[in-house]
Amino acid sequence: MRQEEFLSYRDYFIADYSQEISLNYSRTMADSVSIAEQDLLRSFPDGVESKGQELVCIEAKVAGQIIVVGYLWYTINIEDQTAFICDFYITEPHRSKQFGRHAMSELEEQLKNNGIHQIKLRVAYYNKRAFALYEKIGFVVTGYNMSKNIV
């Protein structure tokens, strides 16, 4: 990903993640946006040059042109030979066209060739479409995230 693409990713991520924070943790939208901004800055203090983070644009040929159809952010833990997908997003007009499945297949091949033996991720409870994709390509449920607000 190039720096100019990172700016578009940043805009998407903050809007999307703040919605998830608000929905899942009953936070105000202003608080949710602030949390999303802080999380992204903590993970990418040096933008796309930040160490320990892999952030790529998912590109595909659409109507004869190569365009960005999504994003994939992951980290690698060399010690236990795993990767963790932090964010995976296919833009709305390009969903259900196999771009997500193809991107995950390419990621698996790349990780396998680099000695990584397991991919982990978290799926939001309400995101049935993502859950179905992950299940179709071989992911299994290993637990549940739960929370309780204390007022």
Rank of each mutant, 00 (worst) to 15 (best):
E79Y: 11
L111N: 08
E20G: 10
V68W: 00
S34D: 11
Q38C: 08
A103E: 04
E79M: 12
Y89T: 05
D80I: 14
I67D: 03
E49S: 13
D11A: 14
A15M: 08
Y17R: 15
L55H: 04
D39T: 06
I14R: 08
L41S: 10
N77H: 12
F44M: 13
V56Y: 11
V48F: 07
Q81N: 12
D11V: 03
K112P: 00
N113W: 02
Y71D: 01
I35V: 15
S34E: 13
S50R: 09
R95K: 12
E37R: 14
D39A: 10
D31R: 13
V62G: 01
G47T: 02
Y25R: 13
I90P: 05
D39M: 14
D16A: 13
Y74K: 06
E37S: 15
Q118T: 14
P93E: 10
K61A: 06
L40A: 10
E79T: 13
I67Q: 07
C57G: 00
W73C: 02
V48R: 03
F13A: 03
R101I: 00
T75F: 01
Q65T: 09
V68K: 04
L72K: 01
V62N: 03
E49C: 02
Q110I: 05
I76G: 03
W73D: 07
K61L: 09
V68P: 01
A83F: 07
Y17D: 08
Y9A: 02
E109P: 00
E106A: 03
K120A: 11
T82C: 12
L107S: 01
Y9I: 02
